[in-house]
Simulated assay, not measured.
Amino acid sequence: MAMAVEGGGTLSEIFQTAKKLLLRARDGVERLERLESSTSSGGLDSPELSFTVKKDISQIQSLCAEMDRLWRLIAAKPQRDLWKRKVEQVAEEAESLKQSLDRYFSRNQKRMREAQERAELLGRANGESAHVLRIFDEEAQAMQSVQNSKRMLQESLSTGSAILSKYSEQRERLKNAQRKALDVLNTVGLSNSVLRLIERRNRVDRWIKYVGMLITLAIMYFLVSWNR
Rank of each mutant, 00 (worst) to 15 (best):
K150C: 05
K77E: 12
C64Q: 01
L174Q: 04
A177V: 04
E66R: 15
K54Y: 03
S58E: 11
R72E: 13
A130H: 11
Q116I: 01
A130Q: 11
V87A: 02
D81T: 09
Q116R: 07
E138C: 01
M143H: 13
T159P: 01
E138Y: 00
V184Q: 07
S168Y: 07
D68N: 14
K77V: 04
Q99A: 08
I135E: 11
R124D: 06
G127W: 02
K110Q: 11
K110P: 00
L82Q: 13
L174S: 14
W83F: 08
V90S: 05
M143D: 12
K84E: 05
L121Q: 09
R80Q: 15
G189Q: 08
S165D: 11
E128F: 02
P78K: 13
K84A: 08
A115K: 10
E139Q: 14
T159K: 14
R124S: 08
E92K: 09
S50V: 09
K98T: 09
A75M: 11
E66I: 10
V90D: 00
S106M: 06
Q144C: 08
K86C: 01
K86M: 07
Q178A: 12
M152N: 12
S129Q: 11
H131L: 07
E155H: 13
A140V: 06
Q147S: 12
E92L: 10
N108S: 10
I60V: 11
R72V: 11
A142I: 08
Q170S: 06
P78R: 14
I135M: 13
L133G: 02
A181K: 06
K84F: 07
A177N: 10
E120W: 03
I163Q: 11
I57L: 06
A91F: 05
V146Y: 14
Q147D: 11
M152V: 12
D137V: 01
V188P: 00
R118G: 00
K86S: 04
M143C: 12
K54P: 03
S149R: 15
E66C: 04
S168M: 07
V87W: 01
Q144Y: 02
R107V: 00
L97D: 06
L164E: 06
A76F: 03
E114K: 11
R171W: 00
D81L: 09
D56P: 01
Q144L: 05
A94T: 04
K77W: 06
S100G: 00
A142Y: 07
K166M: 08
D137N: 14
Q61M: 13
L63G: 00
S106E: 13
S129M: 06
L82P: 02
L121E: 07
L185N: 06
Q89R: 10
L121H: 09
L101F: 04
Q89P: 04
E92H: 09
S106P: 01
L122S: 12
E172L: 15
Q79E: 15
A115S: 14
E169W: 03
V184G: 02
E117A: 10
E92C: 07
S165E: 10
I57S: 02
T159V: 12
